[in-house]
Structures are given as structure tokens and as C-alpha cells.
């Protein structure tokens, strides 16, 4: 049975002390969709995806991925099932080369010989349009290019589900265009959950949008519908 939804949550909740960061969220993403997750700062977006990929334990509720209940699985097992996650605050191996950064992502996914690894690394780097020499130290890259490297590590894993947490933050306009093209080229084959503040990127890339506010889903719909939604405008767009 191939479920329509690659990923679904039911009543997913996370509290920190007395604070409810994510409140009984039912969230489902069909296979192949590019889903944007938007909402004001502190709406619980990062906490929600943190629970999806296993960095943060859920207080209650359930998560299914690829037809399997993964609520209790540790992060690395979820990644092994075909998730990839890029960090909101850039997290790369600063003292290793670009090549090694991406190669670590490639090697985890299967027994490949070093030639195949090398080829996939080059492919991932060129897809995000990183042109620096592959043996340069990752820590020497500019901030924006470190973001691109982070994305390259995500797509190099050839995941079923790619979770991107504010990927375009710190990118130049031309790089953002490249990013949009990259996402569109993956759409259909890879399911993508995208946390994004840049509304142009959201409108350009997303098939469907979920708006989070105070830890709850405020609205869901196609980009045009969300743009027209009065409640969303009041909560979020209006302030932008």
C-alpha cells in the first residue's frame, strides 16, 4: 500500500516547561509536494521540524513517515529512512574540505566506491552552484556559500523528504534565483518541507503552504489562497 502522504503527524505537541511551543498539530505532506511552512518568529516552525527529524522529542502525538510510525525512532534512524535536514543556523564541518563535507553525506547512503562518491559530490556541488575548489576548507566559505554547502549536503543524500530550515537566509539575490530553480528541479521526485521567511521564494517554489501561529496551524492552502487569506495577513503578512 503506497500511502498518499509521505509524512503525517497526529496531535503532535511539544511543551517547554509551561510553554506550549507546538500545540496538537495535524500536518500531512503528500509525496512529491513542495510544502512551505511559514509563520511569525516563535510560531513553532523549527520546533515542529525538529520533532519531524528527531532532534526534539515530542511531548505527545504521533508521526508517520513512509507508512511507518517513527515517533520513537532516534534521529539517525529517521535520516537513514530517507529524511535529510539542513540546519537553521549553519552547521557544517568547518575544518574539513567541501568535498569531505558532501562525501560524508553521500557515503552514509550506501556502499559506493570512492570514484562513485567523488562523482556524486561533484554533482551535488554543481547543482547548488558552488564553484569554489572542492578541497577548500568549508569554514573559509562566505556565510551564504556555507548555506549552499549545507543544501548540497542535503540533496547529496538523495532523500525522499528534504527538510530545509530557512535555506535562503544570507544568500544574494542571484543565489536565491538559483535556489528557486534547484527546488523546482527537484519537485515531484523529492518531497520538500521548507521553512522560509522570504515570501517571494515561498510563492515561487511552494505547491502548498501551511501557516503556523502560536504553535497551531492557522491556515493551509495553495499559495494564491494563502495570499488572499485575511487571517494570515493579520497574523503574518500584514506585519511584513
Amino acid at each position: 500500500m503506497a500511502a498518499v502522504n509521505l509524512l503525517a503527524t497526529k496531535g503532535l505537541t511539544r511543551t517547554f516547561g509551561g510553554l506550549v511551543a507546538v500545540d496538537r498539530v495535524d500536518f500531512a505532506v503528500p509525496r512529491g509536494q513542495v510544502r512551505a511552512l511559514i509563520g511569525p518568529n516563535g510560531a513553532g516552525k523549527t520546533t515542529l521540524v525538529g520533532m519531524l527529524c528527531g532532534r526534539i522529542a515530542a511531548t505527545s502525538g504521533a508521526i508517520t513517515f513512509d507508512g511507518r510510525d517513527i515517533t520513537e525512532l532516534p534521529a539517525h534512524r529517521r535520516i537513514a529512512m530517507g529524511m535529510a535536514y539542513t540546519f537553521q543556523v549553519t552547521s557544517i564541518f568547518a575544518r574539513l574540505s567541501l568535498r569531505e563535507n558532501v562525501a560524508l553525506a553521500v557515503r552514509r547512503c550506501g556502499r559506493l566506491d570512492e570514484r562513485q562518491v567523488e562523482r556524486k559530490v561533484a554533482e551535488a556541488l554543481s547543482r547548488v552552484r558552488l564553484t569554489e575548489p572542492a578541497d577548500q576548507m568549508a569554514g573559509d566559505l562566505s556565510y551564504g556559500h556555507q548555506r549552499l554547502l549545507e543544501i548540497a549536503m542535503g540533496i547529496a543524500q538523495e532523500p525522499q523528504l528534504l527538510i530545509l530550515d530557512e535555506p535562503t537566509q544570507g544568500l544574494a539575490d542571484s543565489e536565491i534565483e538559483g535556489f528557486n530553480a534547484l527546488i523546482r528541479s527537484m519537485a515531484g521526485a523529492t518531497t520538500i518541507v521548507l521553512i522560509e521567511h522570504n515570501m517571494d521564494v515561498v510563492m515561487e517554489t511552494a505547491d502548498y503552504i501551511t501557516v503556523l501561529n502560536f504553535g497551531e496551524i492557522l491556515a493551509e492552502g495553495k499559495p494564491q489562497a494563502i495570499r488572499a487569506d485575511a487571517a494570515v495577513q493579520a497574523a503574518y503578512l500584514g506585519s511584513a
Partner: peptide, 21 residues
């Protein structure tokens, strides 16, 4: 050995690449 170095450099990133740290 490469994974060990990756863990030394950034344990959380290694975990989120799917390695059982």
C-alpha cells in the same frame, strides 16, 4: 575513520547526516 573525524568536528551534524554517533 572519516566518520570519527566528522564526529570530532561536529557531532550534531554527523548525527543529522544519519550516522549512529
Amino acid at each position: 575513520g572519516r566518520v570519527l573525524v566528522a564526529i570530532r568536528e561536529n557531532e550534531e551534524r554527523a548525527r543529522m547526516l544519519g550516522y549512529d554517533v
